[in-house]
Design a protein around this nucleic acid. Structure first.
Lengths: 342, 342
DNA sequence: ATTAGCACTCTCGCATCGAGAGTGCTAAAA
DNA sequence: TTTTAGCACTCTCGATGCGAGAGTGCTAAT
C-alpha cells in the first residue's frame, strides 16, 4: 500500500515524464512542483517506489522513469476521471451532425477527431450487426448480365453485391424473383435461409445461396471496415524515433489478423461503455511493448457494435486520450441508436 | 552526351547502390562487376559523371551515390523495359478472379499486391466515373422514416444514401415514386436532373434534389476512396530511419489534400496506360524529397478512372516497381472494362 | 521522520587518434 | 590519345580518454 505522499510523488513523476520525455530527478521535482519536503525525502520515497516496481532508472544516475506497472497504477488510481471540455464536445457533436447520416463519413470523422484530439494514431471499426435477419431484397439490372443485389437487414444494415448471370434477364423478371423471395425469407437469419427447400427456378436458387452467403460473411470477421488516421502523429514521438519500434506499432494497425486478435480479446469481449487501457502490450502483444492502446466499444446494444481507439507511446496524455475515446464511443453509440430507431 | 562506358558505369553504380544502400567506390565496382578497365579509369569517369550531376559524393572520400538526376537518367535511358514474370502475373490474375466482382475487394487486393511486390507503400484510388447518367433508382424503406436510396448510374456505378423523411411512408408509395422518377430521369446527368420542372409531390421533389446532389458530389473530389497498404515496408528502409523523413513521406499518403494535389498534377492529367515516375519530389513536393513515387492511371476510357501507385525510397528497385504498377493498372483497367461491358 | 551534506557513479559531449577506404593527380605505359 | 599504376591526400568512423554535470544513496545531524 502506498502512502499519500508516495502517490503524490509517483503522480508528479509520471506527469512530468509524460510532458518532457526526460527522466525526472528528485531535485527537479521539488523545484518545479512542491516544496513541502526536500529532495532527500523524495529520493527516499523514490527508492521505495522503485523497489515496488512503479519506477525504473535507465541507469544508476539518471532520474526515474515510470514502469509499465507505474503507468497502470496511475491510470487506475491516481489520474482521476476527466471529461473532454464542454466546448470541445460541442464542436465535435456539431461536426457529426453537419455531415448528415452517412455511416462511412461518421467513421472517417471519428477517426479524424480521435487522432486530432489525442495526437495519436486512431482506429475505428465500422459497426458489425449482432443479429441480422432478412428484411428486404432488391435485384437491379445494371448492365447486360450483371445484376446488383441490394439486401436490407432487420437492423438497418445494407449489403450490396454484384451477381453475374449465365444469360441476360429482364428487369421485370428480376423484380418478380425479388418479390417472391421477400415473401419467403422475411425474418429469417442466415441459417434459416440456407435451410429453405429448393426453389422453383435456378435463378431463384442462385440468389438464395448468395443471400445466405452474404449474411454469413457478415459475421465471419470480427470487425467491419477499418478506418485509421493520425499515423504520422506517432512518428513524431521521440520513442518512435527508432524505426523498428515504429514499424512494430504500425503493423498492429495495418495487419488485420493482429488487430482482430487484439480487438476480440479486449473490447469486443467486454461490455459497452467501458474504456480499456492496454499499457505496454500487457504481456500478450509483443508488437505493443512500447505502446499504449486505449479502446472502447460502441454501438446500439443488441443491434450492432464496433470499436474505437487510439494508439500512442506509453508516455501518453492518458486523461485527454481516455476522455476523447470515451466521448467518441458514446457519441457514435447515440448516433447509431438514433439511426436504428428512426 | 554520355559515352557507352559512362552509361555502363552509371548503371552499375545505381544498381549496386539500390542493392546495398552503401556509397559505391571505384575499386568495389571493378572487383564485383567487370574487369574490362581499371579502377583508375572508373575514377576518371566518375569525376565526369559527378560534374554532369548524375552522381554525388556524400563527402570527399566516400564512394559515389546517385543523384536525383542520376536516377532519372537511369529510369529513362538505362533501365530498359521489364515485365513482371509470367507466373507472378498469373498468380495475381488468379487472385483477382477468385474474389469475384466486388469493387471494394479489388481495390484492397490491388493495394496489397502492389505493396507486396514492390516492397513499398502502395496506394490505390477507387475509380471515379467520367460521365455519369441516371439509369435506375430504388427506394427502400429500412426502418421507420429512414429510407435507403440506391442509385445506379449509366457506367455501372452504384451509390447508396440514407434519406430521413418527415413522416413514415409505406414501401408501396416509395416504389411508386421510384417508378415515376425512373421514367423522367433516365439518361440525364446531374445538371439535367437539377433543371427538371418542379415535381408533383414534396417527396418526389426531395428525392430529385438528393439524386442531383449525389451525382454532383461524385465529381467534386478528384479521387474516390483511398486504399493504402504496406506502410510498414517503407519504415524498414534505412533512409526512413530518421523519423521525420518517414513522417513527411507518410503525410503524403495520409493527408487527402496533399495526395489529391499530387494526383491531379500527374497521372490524372495524363493519358491512360503510361507509368509516371516521380523522383525526389521533382522540385514541387517538399514532402517527397527523399522518396520516389510511381504512379499510373487505370480505368475504362470515357467511363471511369482511378490511380494506382507505390511510394518508396529513391533507392528503389525501379524495374520491379514500375512493372508491377504497370501490370496492376492494366489488370484493373481490364477488369473495369469487362465489368462495364458485361 | 526529515533533511543537509557528501562521496560516488554513470552518462554525455568533446577532443584525440589511427585505421581504412576512396579519391584525384601525375607520370608512365599502351 | 587513352588507359593505368602509383601515391599522397582527405575524410569518416570507431575506439579511447577525459571532464562536467546530474542524480543517486548513505550517513549523520536536526
Amino acid at each position: 500500500m502506498l502512502s499519500e505522499r508516495q502517490k503524490l510523488i509517483l503522480a508528479l513523476v509520471i506527469r512530468d515524464y509524460i510532458d518532457t520525455a526526460q527522466p525526472v530527478g528528485s531535485k527537479h521535482l521539488v523545484e518545479n512542483y512542491t516544496s513541502d519536503f526536500s529532495s532527500a525525502t523524495v529520493r527516499n520515497e523514490m527508492v521505495t517506489l522503485t523497489e515496488m516496481g512503479y519506477l525504473r532508472q535507465p541507469h544508476t544516475s539518471a532520474g526515474r522513469v515510470p514502469s509499465e506497472e507505474g503507468y497502470r497504477f496511475f491510470v487506475r488510481q491516481l489520474m482521476g476521471h476527466t471529461e473532454l471540455p464542454a466546448n470541445t464536445q460541442r464542436t465535435i457533436v456539431h461536426q457529426f451532425y453537419q455531415i448528415g447520416s452517412d455511416m462511412d463519413h461518421w467513421m472517417r470523422l471519428a477517426a479524424s477527431v480521435l487522432a486530432h484530439q489525442a495526437q495519436a494514431a486512431s482506429l475505428v471499426t465500422a459497426p458489425r450487426p449482432e443479429t441480422a435477419r432478412f428484411k428486404h431484397l432488391e435485384l437491379i439490372c445494371t448492365r447486360g448480365r450483371q445484376v446488383l443485389m441490394v439486401l436490407v437487414l432487420s437492423n438497418g444494415e445494407v449489403l450490396q453485391q454484384m451477381l453475374a448471370l449465365g444469360e441476360p434477364v429482364m428487369q421485370e423478371q428480376l423484380s418478380g424473383v425479388a418479390d417472391s423471395l421477400n415473401l419467403i425469407c422475411r425474418g429469417l437469419d442466415a441459417d434459416g435461409i440456407a435451410r429453405l427447400p429448393a426453389a422453383t427456378t435456378a435463378l431463384e436458387q442462385d440468389v438464395i445461396r448468395l443471400v445466405a452467403d452474404e449474411m454469413r460473411r457478415l459475421h465471419a470477421s470480427v470487425a467491419g471496415e477499418l478506418y485509421r488516421d493520425g499515423l504520422t502523429h506517432v512518428l513524431a514521438e521521440p520513442e518512435f524515433g527508432e524505426a523498428d519500434v515504429a514499424r512494430r506499432a504500425l503493423r498492429v494497425l495495418e495487419e488485420r489478423p493482429l488487430l482482430e486478435d487484439l480487438l476480440t480479446r479486449t473490447v469486443l469481449a467486454s461490455e459497452m461503455g467501458g474504456v480499456q487501457v492496454l499499457i505496454g502490450g500487457e504481456g500478450h502483444w509483443e508488437e505493443l511493448r512500447e505502446c499504449s492502446v486505449i479502446l472502447a466499444r460502441y454501438g446500439a446494444p443488441g443491434l450492432a457494435s464496433g470499436a474505437v481507439g487510439v494508439l500512442g507511446p506509453m508516455r501518453m496524455p492518458y486523461g485527454r486520450s481516455i476522455s476523447t475515446v470515451r466521448f467518441v464511443a458514446g457519441l457514435l453509440s447515440n448516433l447509431l441508436e438514433d439511426w436504428h430507431v428512426e
